[in-house]
Design a protein around this nucleic acid. Structure first.
Lengths: 187, 187
DNA sequence: AGCATCCTTTTACATTTGTTAAAAAACGAA
DNA sequence: TTCGTTTTTTAACAAATGTAAAAGGATGCT
């Protein structure tokens, strides 16, 4: 397991000692496409790192489903509210392809956080990077039109464009599928 | 300084020992209304906790300025990109009233993070809470219309409503000032 | 291949929001 | 107070996006 983690970029900032500690609690798991790994109405007791495959996080509304996050190889994946507040969350996470993941129990992760300064700072940086990315997306919703947001997405995530249904990309960009079709048609 | 920090809610989760450590590096500072505490084009070397007064973070665009965050008493305040990537950021922070703040050098904060597990986890939780709040706002942009977002803001932040210019609230909600006026007029 | 299902595009129309400009109101300094 | 500045509202029109429904494509299963 240590050797396996060693090859995942997100763990690069950890020393060998910390990585060995982490490895003690980590498992390698596989789930098929379509699995709802995390459900909004449950406290989900695991934290994951995606090794291969892609996933999306979404929230259910009355008439619609909003996809607000895509995960690719190397990204971490967890229920915010389970992780942060130990309560059921607002997000579901669905695997869009067969996925291989590193799994660790939240309880184990928290004891690592509390017992190992380096891992605590590793977790801090993950949250901070995700925060910057989310805030920029929020700002872009105001500064940029839908067409420009789509062009940015195409440039930044060409792989996702090919592998994810357009209806999910539409809601990720904050528009309806009809609007996205219009943008793609160049009108 | 220790006694002063003791009374600020955000420090409640820290033990006395950690708080004493923190207090060694913290200063009490005051700045007048209108101060641009953090500028997008600079690496800002401080981290602040707001004790009194209010502030806003905004980004400059070609024709507009987008306010994407308001800070009230008890909130932390820093340049994301300085703090996280040690690069100039995209955000300015302006004090909207005379403010009293706790100031700590980023370099000192980082050495606290690296030397004190409890403080590292304190910083982790701050980023995580901010991340949840930002993500919910992003999701609300899709699920809710502008009128509902305004009503939510009125309910959740009545104090800000009274103290902040409507033009800033409009951009915070993701609409123009004209649209916000229409919503307020009930049309 | 053939059928059923789901995804994507297109069309027509309704609604929301943006833009520009002007008027009204609020605010601050002398 | 009074003047000048800034903020907020209002109006008219333009542009962007949403909604609903239908048609066309793609995909997967037997």
């Amino acid at each position: 397991m240590y050797q396996q983690l060693k090859n995942i970029e997100i763990f690069n900032s950890l020393s060998d000692d910390s990585l060995h500690e982490f490895a003690k609690h980590a498992q390698d798991v596989n789930y098929p496409k379509g699995t709802i790994l995390i459900r909004a109405d449950r406290v989900e007791p695991h934290f994951y790192v995606l090794q291969s495959g892609i996933a999306r996080a979404y929230s259910d509304g009355e008439n619609q489903q909003i996809t607000f996050w895509f995960g690719e190889s190397g990204n971490v994946l967890f229920s915010f509210n389970s992780y942060i507040n130990n309560k059921p969350g607002y997000e579901n996470i669905e695997l869009l392809e067969d996925c291989r993941l590193i799994q660790i129990k939240l309880a184990d992760l928290f004891s690592l956080y509390n017992g190992n300064t380096e891992i605590a700072n590793w977790g801090r940086k993950i949250a901070e990077q995700e925060l910057i990315a989310t805030e920029r997306r929020l700002i872009d919703r105001s500064f940029k039109g839908a067409a420009e947001r789509y062009q940015d997405f195409v440039k930044q995530s060409p792989a996702l464009l090919k592998r994810v249904a357009l209806k999910h990309i539409a809601s990720y960009l904050g528009v309806t599928q009809v609007t996205l079709s219009r943008i793609r048609a160049g009108k």
